[in-house]
Design a protein around this nucleic acid. Structure first.
Ligand SMILES: NC(=O)c1ccc[n+]([C@@H]2O[C@H](COP(=O)([O-])OP(=O)(O)OC[C@H]3O[C@@H](n4cnc5c(N)ncnc54)[C@H](O)[C@@H]3O)[C@@H](O)[C@H]2O)c1
Ligand SMILES: NC(=O)c1ccc[n+]([C@@H]2O[C@H](COP(=O)([O-])OP(=O)(O)OC[C@H]3O[C@@H](n4cnc5c(N)ncnc54)[C@H](O)[C@@H]3O)[C@@H](O)[C@H]2O)c1
Lengths: 255, 255
DNA sequence: CCCGCTTTGTGCGTGCGTTCACAAGGACAT
DNA sequence: ATGTCCTTGTGAACGCACGCACAAAGCGGG
């Protein structure tokens, strides 16, 4: 009621919606490439692999950008979603860990495509420092804080071994980074206000395995995966309680 | 009421729970490595980064494996979760695409650690075929169907360019693979009964950017990201409708 | 100018997931 | 054997997300 604008009636966009906006955006880019000027919610939803009602509700959170009876103007919608996601500005990203994964990330074209710029690639290992990867020179991770401040890094990517992840995370945070993307198989501890997203290959595989097992189980009857051997330890109590304090510190390479 | 067993009262485990079981499993492995025999829901929850009530409810879906007043036997719980996830058996995985990412995946130790075995690494590019990566020889993707059948591959990983992803996916499916992990920035089309999980770096970054922008906006007042330029196209209608059929076919490198 | 067609934007019912809070259960000491 | 203490397992309340179904709105044709 306060503003006559047709934009966001409410600045609180549901998290589930935010996670889908990039998918819509990609589908829309595909449409512009093919010269399509306008798209209906039905068509766009199909391209994005979602329900059309869900798509419309998602878009309605940004404002009223469609035309009834016609659909959405592709270019305009791209602009609006991009702005909402913050892609109209440049984001400087620092990658720590120049191993297999870190180098693959640095070489990844899709990284740069939408407003994300790799500002630095850091590693602790001396033998890697100075090497050139994707037009970047690997810098020593001692420089982390300096690099973050000087190059206005706002997103940190952790591609180190699991052992180093929490330390790197802490340093990112103390340098002022409040958005972190973590590839190491560790639960990171961060203060309030810092966003962490994790990408965990091992977890994805395990989820797939679970469903795969289900499918197989259906064909073979119930209880087929119950081992003939008795469970390894009929939970027999022996020792007393052992206090566990720094549990989240010691996690080893991807289980 | 039918079975006296203390196991699954209900075989339907919530999807959200399944997604967390691997996290618990990892935390539990960390505990065994430190020789901890028993853990309370409070401690384990802290290690996994979740609410303890949620942890208990999650575990309760598998059965009643805790001891009141004491907690959970670590080894035993590891066994139960592993079995539920299907990790007590071996899963053969085939990776298609031996580019930067595919090679990083093949080299990834955490891949093999828990019952997952890389059965093949395939690529269409002749110059890559025959190369050795992580003890594997790259094979030509013509061999996909043969490899899947002969080596009992049940999980397919797609690490090709976006353009090739759907084709590879179709071939996986027709060869009988019903679980697919997709790294290409494409919405895959699969028949009922096939599970697809996607890992999309670009989406994760965009979600982070969204929240990062939010935080900055709070400090700078509302509407700060509204460009001074008028929106690129005051959605002015020109041409007529253009039918869009194969929308999901044409997607380009990660936007 | 009005009418019919198409598609948006959304109110509403439903179901899932999260969290609180507590009774029930088991271990250990006495 | 009994009491105390601790932790599990879960009932219940709440909130979010999804999808149906429809009224409102714009467009084009007559
Ligand atoms: N390779 C994959 O496909 C893959 C997939 C999923 C997850 N991961 C995870 O990503 C991480 C990296 O994987 P990778 O295959 O590149 O491993 P890697 O061993 O090849 O590379 C790790 C790099 O991080 C550096 N490093 C370690 N500690 C550091 C620190 N404190 N500061 C700065 N640099 C440090 C090392 O010097 C090394 O170069 C691992 O945690 C791994 O579990 C990898
Ligand atoms: N590199 C990254 O960090 C990263 C991150 C996220 C997503 N991705 C996505 O993962 C995919 C692979 O990335 P990359 O960096 O390894 O790219 P890349 O170009 O290095 O490798 C792609 C490989 O796939 C092969 N290929 C293409 N079409 C094929 C087909 N039909 N059958 C078999 N092989 C085929 C190519 O020959 C090439 O070797 C891309 O879709 C990319 O968008 C990459």
């Amino acid at each position: 009621m306060t503003r006559p604008s047709s934009r966001p009636r409410d600045r609180g966009i549901p998290e589930a919606t935010v996670a889908r906006l990039p998918v819509y955006l990609r589908a829309l880019h595909g449409l512009t490439d093919r010269g399509v000027p306008t798209v209906s919610s039905e068509e766009l939803a199909a391209a994005a692999g979602v329900n059309s009602a869900k798509l419309r509700k998602d878009l309605s959170h940004l404002g009223s950008y469609g035309t009834r009876g016609v659909g959405y103007d592709v270019e305009y919608l791209i602009y609006q979603i991009s702005r909402e996601l913050g892609l109209t500005q440049d984001w400087a990203v620092a990658i720590v860990g120049a191993g297999n994964l870190g180098r693959a990330l640095a070489n990844y074209g899709g990284f740069v495509s939408r407003g994300f710029r790799i500002a630095a690639l850091l590693d602790v290992q001396e033998s890697l420092v100075g090497a050139e990867v994707a037009g970047l020179r690997v810098e020593h991770s001692d420089q982390l804080e300096a690099v973050v401040r000087q190059r206005r890094v706002s997103i940190g990517v952790i591609a180190t071994s699991a052992a180093g992840a929490q330390t790197v995370c802490d340093r990112f945070v103390s340098a002022g980074v409040t958005s972190i993307l973590n590839f190491a198989p560790v639960v990171l501890n961060v203060p309030e206000g810092v966003d962490v997203r994790k990408v965990d290959l091992s977890i994805e595989l395990q989820i797939l395995a679970f469903h795969e097992q289900r499918k197989a189980a259906g064909a073979l009857g119930p209880d087929w995966n119950v081992s003939v051997e008795p469970p390894p330890a009929p939970p027999e109590r022996v020792g007393g309680r052992i206090p566990v304090d720094a549990v989240d510190a010691a996690e080893e390479e991807g289980r």
